[in-house]
Design a protein around this nucleic acid. Structure first.
Lengths: 334, 334
DNA sequence: TGAGTCTATCATAGCGCTACGATCCAGGTT
DNA sequence: AACCTGGATCGTAGCGCTATGATAGACTCA
């Protein structure tokens, strides 16, 4: 038993391999008669094209390599999902990697990714090791950095400003009359984007002359449980706390649960503001005021940048950077 | 500017390309002196091996293709994440696809997946189109079906029995004295595994002579909001409802929120049991009794099966099927 | 000392496909 | 009748690497 090759199809259809290849890539360029013969032969033999060989011959494979910190994170799962849908529709495959928020791990992933001669590489965030930047620049492959906007992207970028998200959060809490504030975040040594939201929050809050404004970090992952722990720590440090912003809706939900457990009224005693607008945020009690980043849109825009970059019309100038913005979704928790 | 090839490395290191290739695959087989020269040359040139060429020459690429219904689903995100970690450690990459619960879409994905001459293919569940089965069997590639166990897997399988999960849920509710039961699920036309949990639930519940036992389905995705809707529909149909099992913790959480909203005591008036043991399930109020399937373990075991299948010791007989079981996690909601 | 046995290295022949330029052959033009 | 045109088809030369013996040299042992 042998693998069926294009040659076999060509023989059966009584044409040359070149014609089969042409038919597969541009069916319109082949006469209807030959096309039918070829289609018949493909079906009869159960031919599956070998994209590895094709990729080698064409010097670029129909693969887009996507590297995210973690796919367990609902944000990135959403983005990867929409990015993938858009790319698959154009005949591309997604090679996935997760860096676990480590720059060296990311560099290793980029290295392997480039080994596949991908059509494009998608990275998360703007913080990368020098080696990563060098590898990518040397490769000449289109690169999209997503989920963050700022100075000096490697190639293209689609996302939003995290400091601005923090600022929006601070303004909202201040507008609700809150003056004793905290920002609850997780893993902020590694998750630079969360850290930027935190510092944007503090900076903006300062304008409103708060009584206090602390950043409280949980070293572990951003989970509901972490949210409960963080709220307890916050209350220990700031007994008269009246407003919190969280780096993630999961943390906000944990804080909310902890308030319920301790009999603290939300939003009357403490206002809670999240980030992400996850699945449960509209449904919980009270429903969660949050900031929606639209991971879905980021994925779609990233796909658009990649496709136009490949199809010969590389976006230039400011078109290489897409700001997807953020939206404050006001609900009952503030 | 040219792409750096193995030939360039060989020239600089003053050895033949074969030796470089050998060094890259089995460093121990090359003398330390030559090895050092080669390593130096690789670093100096910034050489990145071309795995596409390698895959073609070796007739199998270091890629494992994984197809899940959706990565937005926390279950599969967890599995993919652990599967990937295990595979990356052995030098494999993961090519991801999502079928959106469609068999034709899955077949199309399998077809493209096979075009990459993958080292293995991982599928979700046991329900596939005839075409999918034929393609995979003809290809001779190792196949793992995950998240479900039952008769006649294509090649290997790792997962658990969904009817048994349903039965466990039913027994637990019965043991708590509940007799007016409902199973709340979403998308059960397409999500066969959820449907099997439902029917396992009903079948086992019948043994306990319940007053009622209904299956209620939401056609859309399994979300917290769907849970709220489902609880309302259940109460409409069964006003004296006293126990529900949900096909997913998100639905259970939605049901829980809706109970709170309507002032129904949980578990006193209605006991709620979930599935998945998601992030929030231990933290919500009351904490959620649930059944934990261990998506993490499934991913690790799938990786193990794949690796041993590739490394020449294909597991045989019953070792080709791994039952990861399920665990009832009893908390406050029942 | 010569045969036998390693170990380290190498030359060669593809893997299956695509890109490119060449070729063929109707049908029209002068 | 000679010439051109352009669409359809084909032949060839790699893409960059790995697998497979083959070879050279160092070492052992009778």
């Amino acid at each position: 038993m042998q693998r069926v090759t294009m040659m076999d199809v060509a023989k059966l259809a009584q044409v040359s391999p070149s014609t089969v290849s042409l038919y597969l890539r541009k069916p319109a360029a082949v006469s209807p008669a030959a096309g039918q013969e070829i289609a018949r032969a493909i079906a009869a033999l159960g031919y599956v094209p070998n994209l590895v060989a094709g990729g080698l011959a064409a010097a670029s494979s129909k693969v887009v390599s996507v590297i995210v910190p973690s796919i367990r994170n609902a944000f990135f799962a959403e983005t990867v999902s929409s990015l993938q849908s858009a790319l698959v529709a154009e005949g591309f495959q997604v090679l996935l990697g997760h860096s676990e928020y480590g720059e060296e791990q990311e560099e290793a992933l980029v290295r392997t990714a480039l080994s596949w001669a991908p059509a494009a590489v998608v990275l998360t965030g703007l913080s990368h090791s020098a080696g990563t930047r060098k590898l990518l620049q040397a490769s000449g492959v289109p690169v999209v950095e997503m989920w963050e906007l700022g100075a000096d992207p490697i190639d293209m970028a689609v996302g939003f400003s995290h400091p601005q998200v923090g600022a929006t959060a601070a303004r909202h809490l201040l507008s609700k009359g809150r003056r004793t504030l905290a920002f609850l975040g997780a893993r902020m040594q590694e998750d630079h984007r969360a850290a930027k939201r935190a510092s944007g929050f503090v900076e903006e809050a300062r304008q409103g002359e708060p009584r206090t404004c602390e950043i409280i970090n949980h070293p572990g992952a951003a989970t509901v449980e972490a949210g409960s722990l963080l709220l307890n720590r916050a209350l220990q440090q700031i007994p008269d706390l009246d407003g919190i912003a969280c780096s993630n809706d999961l943390i906000a939900l944990g804080a909310l649960f902890e308030c319920q457990r301790r009999g603290i009224a939300v939003p009357e005693s403490i206002a809670i503001l999240g980030f992400g607008d996850l699945d449960f945020s509209a449904s919980c009690i009270p429903s969660l005021t949050t900031i929606r980043p639209s991971g879905d849109l980021i994925g779609r825009e990233a796909a658009r940048l990649i496709l136009s970059s490949i199809h010969g019309e590389p976006p230039d100038g400011s078109a290489r950077i897409v700001d997807t913005g953020h939206v404050l979704v006001e609900r009952r928790s503030t």
